[in-house]
Simulated assay, not measured.
Amino acid sequence: MYIIDECHLLWNDLVGYLWNFVKNPLKIPILNPKERQTYYGALELFTQEFTLVPEPTANGELTVEFVKKLLGKHPQARILLIWDGASYHRGQVMRDFLTEQNEGLLPENWQITCVRFAPYAPQENPVEAIWLQLKTLLRRFYRFGKSFKSVKRLFQLFVDLKLFNLPNFSNYDAFSRFA
């Protein structure tokens, strides 16, 4: 069972609220505020393993590739994906992939089943809490973010070192029994 979400890391995500003396304001130069990196993230509910895959953007084709990577981790298992209603989660490319994967099977035997969170309810998705922690940590290390390349490296390092707390599932009604 995977809880999935995408994060769009922007160059200006490094800018946040920082403490400093009022008479001496802190200025952080942003060289190109439009630079961005998309990450697909999946939290496996039972093992609590977090999978992160960087991509140039989020679309139907890349979403299918991400799901295939998750399938590769569990080739014989049936997988439940829980995610939001992003267009690339419910678009034609994904529908075609699901049809191919589940062809000829009854719904209770599908290899992949997808369930959506309620519309416009990011507070229901525990992966959102992970993104928030990672971006907050990035802001604390703003002085090391001299380039967007270094910001992306820091973000990846924070994930690799697991410098985030796993969400408390009891705070999420849908997952409270797994806490």
Rank of each mutant, 00 (worst) to 15 (best):
L105K: 04
T57I: 03
R36K: 15
L80C: 04
R36Y: 10
Y39R: 03
L81E: 04
L52K: 08
Y88N: 09
E55T: 15
S87Y: 03
M94V: 03
H89Y: 02
N59Y: 07
K73I: 00
I79R: 03
I79V: 12
D96F: 07
P107T: 00
T57H: 12
R78A: 13
Y88I: 06
I82F: 06
L80R: 01
R95E: 00
L62M: 13
L45N: 02
R78C: 12
L105V: 03
H74N: 14
E65G: 04
F50W: 13
H89K: 03
F97C: 00
K69A: 01
V93D: 08
T38K: 08
Q37R: 14
Q37F: 07
A58Q: 13
Y88T: 07
A86L: 01
F66T: 15
I79L: 06
F46R: 14
F46W: 11
H74T: 07
T99R: 08
R95C: 11
L81D: 03
K34C: 12
N59S: 12
F50Q: 11
L81Y: 01
V67F: 11
R36H: 15
E103W: 05
P75R: 00
T63E: 04
F46D: 15
I82E: 05
I30P: 08
V64Q: 04
P33M: 12
Q37D: 12
R36Q: 15
L105P: 05
E61S: 02
P54Y: 05
E100C: 07
E49R: 14
F97A: 00
T99L: 10
